[in-house]
């Protein structure tokens, strides 16, 4: 079978220093368009998480993510006292006690990951991109979403990984291996961008240069979105693209702002926020 260059590695993790027995365990599940994450908190501390690919069935994807987060912890789903579902598939999480939008969850999760000084969060997801302003407790004060096209999203990056036969994890590094920054390809539509990139490859552009042109286009695309609501410091990026330095550094350069460095995987921010909402709702008795 041909190698699927877009296929990123699934993973899970748990903190062996935390003993969950008898503690208040809450969970969050973020069923996105491309990936699903589950997070478990023990008394409000990050205990375990997983990140898996979303299939065509949201209930199964949410279950797979949660099962994998629970793996190796000795816990069962019944031990999780309150679960919040978020993301595109949030209403299809059969074991969730409540569904909350990913906008609110990314703000709450971003606040936990980056600290109370964060005011602008850029969530670069698989299928859409959201610019979020939040207050010191992680409550959303303003948000803007672009879900009309795939340019500026993780799915667009996967399309390019396949087109160029470059593993998706290597794209960020490779995009800097150019003598000078090429002009961006189309940032209006990923289909146009792909056509344009095919043309550039036929003209003899090396892969690195095409990758740089796409990272540049992607950064420009989201900066346009950010500029509409304004960037208030501190600034942070969540979502899978937050791990692609080729895009992150170009966004920083275009905005003239340095993004905060995450203490945890930026891709779990939504699920982490959902788990934090779950903790608050459990304490409220809802």
């Amino acid at each position: 079978m041909a190698q699927e260059f877009w296929r990123w590695k699934e993973y899970n993790w748990h903190d062996e220093n935390i003993q969950p027995n008898g503690a208040a365990i809450t969970g969050g599940v973020d069923v996105g368009s491309v990936s699903s994450q589950a997070v478990l908190l023990v008394n409000g501390q990050l205990y375990a998480y997983s990140s898996t690919r979303t299939g065509s069935d949201s209930p199964n994807s949410s279950k797979k993510a949660m099962d994998w987060a629970l793996e190796g912890t000795g816990l069962k789903l019944e031990d999780v006292k309150f679960i919040v579902g978020t993301g595109y598939g949030r209403v299809n999480v059969p074991f969730a006690n409540r569904a909350i939008t990913e906008i609110a969850c990314h703000a709450r999760g971003g606040n936990f990951m980056y600290g109370p000084t964060v005011r602008t969060i850029l969530d670069m997801g698989g299928q859409d991109c959201k610019a979020i302003h939040c207050d010191p407790v992680g409550k959303v004060t303003n948000f803007l979403m672009n879900d009309k096209c795939a340019a500026g999203t993780g799915r667009g990056m996967e399309v390019f990984a396949d087109l160029l036969s470059v593993p998706i994890e290597e794209i960020g590094e490779l995009s800097f291996q150019v003598e000078e920054e090429p002009p961006p390809v189309s940032s209006t539509c990923v289909v146009f961008a792909k056509s344009e990139a095919s043309g550039l490859l036929r003209k003899g552009w090396p892969k690195n240069k095409v990758i740089a042109a796409y990272c540049n286009a992607m950064a420009h695309r989201v900066v346009t979105l950010l500029e509409r609501i304004g960037v208030e410091k501190d600034f942070a990026i969540t979502g899978g693209i937050g791990k692609n330095i080729g895009v992150v550094q170009r966004i920083e350069r275009e905005l003239g702002v340095t993004a905060l460095k995450a203490k945890y995987d930026p891709q779990i921010a939504g699920a982490l926020g959902a788990a934090l909402f779950a903790k608050a709702l459990l304490e409220k008795g809802k």
Binding site: N142, L144, K148, T224
Partner: peptide
């Protein structure tokens, strides 16, 4: 909270 509903595309920005 200011909630912006709409989109931006090649022709402009359309948000309520």
């Amino acid at each position: 909270m200011k909630a912006n509903y709409g989109y931006l595309d090649g022709s402009g920005q359309y948000f309520i």
